[in-house]
């Protein structure tokens, strides 16, 4: 089995699987939110907050957020390793991606679960 030294999970198969599982979850979440916004054209603050206040939707959002971070990492890692050939440049690019990704998670988490 081929082991990659830079892959996050240290296994290409796990990356491959994580990308697919997270894709399905993210796809369902994106379709849900788009449909919700389309069906509630005159959405107000109370209704919007009410949606994110429900426990099942908080869990759905949290799972999608974890899926998003995993999906971003596998996808951006694949793109970066394909196009950025210089090891140091690639290290810097991947570091920026990882830090941005972590920031996304913290912001998304605190938006739904914080305060």
């Amino acid at each position: 089995m081929v082991k990659s030294i830079t892959s996050f999970s240290r296994s290409g198969l796990m990356d491959w699987l994580a990308q697919r599982v997270s894709a399905v979850l993210l796809g369902s979440y994106a379709i849900f939110l788009l449909a919700y916004l389309m069906l509630n054209a005159d959405l107000d603050y109370q209704q919007w907050q009410g949606l994110f206040g429900q426990f099942w939707f908080k869990i759905y959002t949290l799972s999608s957020l974890i899926a998003l971070v995993a999906h971003i990492w596998v996808g951006m890692w694949t793109v970066a390793t394909d196009y950025v050939k210089n090891a140091w440049s690639r290290f810097i690019v991947l570091t920026i991606i990882a830090l941005t990704n972590f920031t996304y998670f913290v912001i998304g988490f605190s938006a739904v679960w914080g305060a």
């Binding site: 081929v2 990659s4 892959s7 290409g12 198969l13 990356d15 491959w16 694949t78 793109v79 390793t81 394909d82 196009y83 050939k85």
Partner: peptide, 11 residues
């Protein structure tokens, strides 16, 4: 199979 090692985009 993990596609990364023979990605058609890989240079």
């Amino acid at each position: 199979s993990p596609p990364y090692l023979n990605s058609p985009h890989r240079w």
